[in-house]
């Protein structure tokens, strides 16, 4: 349960980007999370709601895009999407030398801000 630390990381990047842009507030934050990380979507939403009050992001929504894992095979070049248990061996040629292409993301993509003068 380290979603609180993850939420704090998202909040601090969002608030500093909003300050730089001269924002009055943040209305939405967009993040991408790989399915292979140990981050729970529900727990992250809960943590977000708990830490935003009193910050520029108060009342903002946290928009989480979960990314499926995918790998490529060094032997035959096959690329495939997989869950946690089917990524270490190539389903096409049976090769074990594989490279993870996606699934470990923990990324903040963008924010929607309320600008000075917005109602």
């Amino acid at each position: 349960m380290h979603e609180m630390g993850i939420a704090e990381g998202i909040l601090s990047s969002s608030v500093s980007a909003a300050h730089e842009a001269g924002a009055r507030g943040i209305s939405a934050v967009y993040v991408t999370i790989g399915e292979l990380t140990e981050v729970s979507e529900d727990a992250l939403q809960f943590a977000w709601e708990a830490i935003v009050p009193g910050t520029l992001a108060e009342g903002s929504s946290l928009d989480i895009t979960m990314v499926r894992a995918s790998s490529s095979c060094a032997d035959c070049g096959n690329e495939w999407e997989h869950d946690r248990y089917s990524g270490s061996q190539c389903p096409a040629c049976g090769g074990w030398v594989v490279m993870l292409l996606a699934g470990r993301e923990l990324k903040i993509d963008s924010i929607d801000i309320d600008e000075e003068g917005d109602a």
């Binding site: 993850i6 990381g9 998202i10 990047s13 969002s14 980007a17 909003a18 842009a21 924002a23 993040v31 923990l106 990324k107 903040i108 993509d109 963008s110 924010i111 929607d112 801000i113 600008e115």
Partner: peptide
């Protein structure tokens, strides 16, 4: 307005 951040959370 949308502001791009494109940064690792950690």
């Amino acid at each position: 307005m949308k502001v791009d951040i494109e940064k690792r959370i950690l």
